[in-house]
Design a protein around this nucleic acid. Sequence first.
DNA 1: CGTACACTTGAGTAGGATCAATTGAAGTGG
DNA 2: CCACTTCAATTGATCCTACTCAAGTGTACG
Lengths: 200, 200
Amino acid sequence: MLSEGTRSVHLYTVLLGLGFRYKLLPDGRRQILNYLLPGDLIGLQSSLMGEMQHSVEALSPMLLCVFQRSQLPELYRNYPGLAFDITWIAAREEQMLDENLLSIGRRTALERTAYLIAFVAARALAAGYSLQPKMELPLTQQHIADTLGLSLVHTNKTIRKLVERNLVRWLERGCEVVDLDGLMAVAGWEGLFEGRRPLV
Amino acid sequence: MLSEGTRSVHLYTVLLGLGFRYKLLPDGRRQILNYLLPGDLIGLQSSLMGEMQHSVEALSPMLLCVFQRSQLPELYRNYPGLAFDITWIAAREEQMLDENLLSIGRRTALERTAYLIAFVAARALAAGYSLQPKMELPLTQQHIADTLGLSLVHTNKTIRKLVERNLVRWLERGCEVVDLDGLMAVAGWEGLFEGRRPLV
DNA sequence: CGTACACTTGAGTAGGATCAATTGAAGTGG
DNA sequence: CCACTTCAATTGATCCTACTCAAGTGTACG
């Protein structure tokens, strides 16, 4: 979809769908940085700094709202409330990256896997999707492996453990969240923190 | 210094010194998220969202510039240029976290260690410190371990390899960068990307 | 019907963790 | 000034988590 190093791309808001941001090492190793859900911004880095240092790919058809990069200064001048919202979203992204870093750096494979599935599910709920009748996340095990810094094989074996414990089910190309609280307990994760967005 | 969960702290700009942001797991495992150098912001998350989800600690005496949290809305209304700068700094922090995530998730212990030392050194250079006569980073091996998601023992053994290759020297409580380019080569790291900061 | 992709499982290996013990420098208090 | 503690770094030995290699299943698709 969008590749690293691209210049002058616009700023987008995700309205619908699921995608992810990632980086590659020269030899092909891939690290998924975060997932993109409705309400997220795409391209803030490139809008501000001229070049995107990561790539973006869609997992399901995405509906985006385009915002001209050249209008950003004008927005900051005339719509301080929107400018504030942009900063707010950037700070929230930072917060999520902090949590992901903690996860990859210090959680065990089982904790990490539980955390990731719970995290994406919680974000989907916060974005308005429903757990009922069932919440299905359209991820392959390769995506999960590349998010967690694990190998595909070990990711598979770890997911099997979560399935055995009846916390998730695995469908073709995606996982179904059976017990969100159980996943959070395994991960030792408190859930998303979303302070009230202050009005300016 | 500042602890997770603290409310209503102000927004600070680092003028001088070195510190770091970190998160803890309930059982004490620690993950260092990023280092704080002159030009960085402290407390943006709490200023915007009401609560800080990480802690902050100083590695050397720090000089901060305080900004009243309550004045933030006013700043956004009357000083769009400064508001833009805040967003720019937030986007740069996001970029650094992306790179750290790639490192912890996908680089080997040796690559990671080389990357981290090169990264902090490059940031120090960018912040105006000098490599000459020698650049000394006031970190313990425990800090490095907690940044890289490695154990202390393995971090020590990995650093020894870098010392053997004459890329760094280890002093009491801190490391001296001998060959920055060599470290970057080992890490497969291109260096800091800093696009021009646009004026609004 | 063949190919591609995602998932699964077993076997062997290795990178990094844990445990344990030692050294050396830097306080601190008697 | 010297015993005593503390903190950081170091090193060896052993263990185990997660990696790699390899083979096989099931489903979708042209």
